[in-house]
Amino acid sequence: MRALWQKLYGWLDERIGFDDFYKNLLDRPEPRGNWWNTLGSASLFLFIMQVLTGIFLTVYYNPSPDHAYESILYIMNDVQFGWLVRGIHHWGASLMVLVVFIHMLRTFVTASYKYPRELTWLVGIGLLLITIGMGFTGYLLPWHQMAYWATTVGTAIAGSVPFLGDFILQALRGGPDLSALTLQRFYAAHIWILPLLLGGLIGFHLFLIIKHGESHWPDKED
């Protein structure tokens, strides 16, 4: 048995190269960090939780004005642990916005956006904006009063852009008013477009962090 396992490990190692992974990804030297340095990984953890619980929610959720609300009631009342999955997704969303924002503040305070990490910052701002976009699109999905009217106002804000306002408003809503089309496109944005962008940019963000290493806590010399 043990021999078989070793053989399998050897075969995989030859093709994947676990040692390289270990050396380049895990066994990296880092400046002495403190607890503020965990905010980025906390954001990543929350993202993963949101992806998992989000995927689970799509198993029962139905993005149509007729059934969105009922399907969420079903998740909350009838599906086993549905309240837990939705609860984590709901609170995780709020917490993710908060943690990503504080992560941005931490980076600002320690001036980690400076050479050679300018691009990491740029991507990071993109991540912050997409995270807020996830919050905005996700808020409509339960199709309750609060969601409906908040989104009416939210999209109207985008509609106040001079000249292009009406066009932007209709593009966001899929028509002059909130409708089934709005719900459907917010759903598509929330589960496909924005998460894919977010995932891709997170990958790039992580690549840049590994390439340049985590910034050190600045002292008087810096």
Binding site: L26, D27, E30, R32, G33, N37, S41, A42, F45
Partner: peptide, 17 residues
């Protein structure tokens, strides 16, 4: 004078997670 990503940093990350 720093530390290693694994396990030092990941340990802290895991506790926060």
């Amino acid at each position: 004078r720093g530390e290693r990503f694994w396990p030092d940093s990941i340990y802290k990350d895991a506790i926060v997670a």
